[in-house]
Computed example of a mutant assay.
Amino acid sequence: MTPVFRFAPSPNGELHLGHALSAILNHDMARETSGRFLLRIEDIDPQRCRPEFEAQIFEDLRWLGLNWEEPVRRQSEHVDVYRDALKKLRGMGLVYPAFLSRAEVKRRVAEAEERGDDWPRDPDGTPLYPTEERELDSALAASRLKAGDRHLWRLNMDRALEHLGSERLDWLETGHAAPERIPAHPSLWGDVALWRWDAPSSYHLSVVVDDALQGVTHVVRGRDLYWSTPVHRLLQRLLDLPQPTYLHHRLLTDESGQKLSKSLRSTGLRALRQAGETPSDIRRRIGL
């Protein structure tokens, strides 16, 4: 099987050194294995993604000397595919409409903590969505949906895991002295959102569908997405999608030890290029 790698940035800001590390790693690994290198534009969020940032992504990557297959896949052009995946999960009874806003969840968390109760949080520290909302009266939920109330579609994590039965979820993590199978525990994330009222699909749903449709065999991405992998493995299993191999590479940080951000123009590829740096300089900066 021909190895297939991909770099999948979101056009919601300028690329920085951390993006360069991920893009170059994928590009070089594809070349070293006689594989394919794909570029995917994850522009599923219409509120933040802009065409000028997409154009700059192409410019920056070409300046780095990277080449990719055409055509480039844009998530905004494939919303129906993600909707079909959600429809399949709905047909399995594994998702439900969630109407609480972030402010309402925040208020419930504050009230619980004032009573001295601990509120469960996901690996990123975000409070989990209250599980009692799974049991919203079906007639009331249908009425609210018909009325156009803002909502998300969330995965009922307990039902999803029950659907798997005794099957063990894991993934193959490479890049170490020896590949290692990592146990996957998606329950840590609670009832993850799969579809938003203000943006079609979510990252979790769209990324697993795209990887499967594009035949991606090796997902090479930053360590910050390591703990998202259990959710992706669960969705792959529920949707009968193939399982790629994973490599979560080191993250680049600023002087304070914080992960690089698109807001840090000092590490932006465009700014560095304008300052006279070369692609070879970039490779040295990121340790390649």
Rank of each mutant, 00 (worst) to 15 (best):
V207T: 13
W197H: 15
S201T: 14
D224G: 13
D198S: 15
D224R: 07
R237M: 11
D210R: 04
V208K: 04
S206N: 12
Y203G: 00
Q214A: 14
L225V: 06
V219F: 02
V207D: 05
S228K: 09
V216W: 08
P200I: 00
D211N: 13
P200N: 03
L205N: 06
H204C: 00
L234F: 08
R221L: 12
H232P: 08
V219K: 01
Y203E: 03
R237L: 10
L213G: 00
A212C: 13
W197F: 14
S228L: 10
V207E: 02
L205D: 00
H232M: 11
V209D: 05
R221E: 12
L213E: 11
R221P: 12
Q214W: 03
L225W: 02
V208L: 09
D224F: 12
W197S: 15
L225A: 06
V209F: 04
A212T: 09
R233V: 10
S228E: 08
A212W: 07
S201M: 00
W227R: 14
L234C: 09
W227Q: 15
T217I: 01
L235H: 05
V216S: 10
S228W: 04
R237K: 15
D211E: 15
A199K: 12
L225I: 02
S202V: 08
H232K: 12
D211P: 04
D198I: 09
A199Q: 14
R223W: 11
T229D: 01
G215R: 07
T229P: 05
V220H: 09
S228A: 15
H204E: 06
V208P: 02
R237V: 08
Q214G: 07
V208W: 06
V231T: 14
V216L: 12
Q236A: 05
R223P: 09
L205F: 01
P230C: 07
S201F: 04
G222A: 13
S206W: 01
L234E: 04
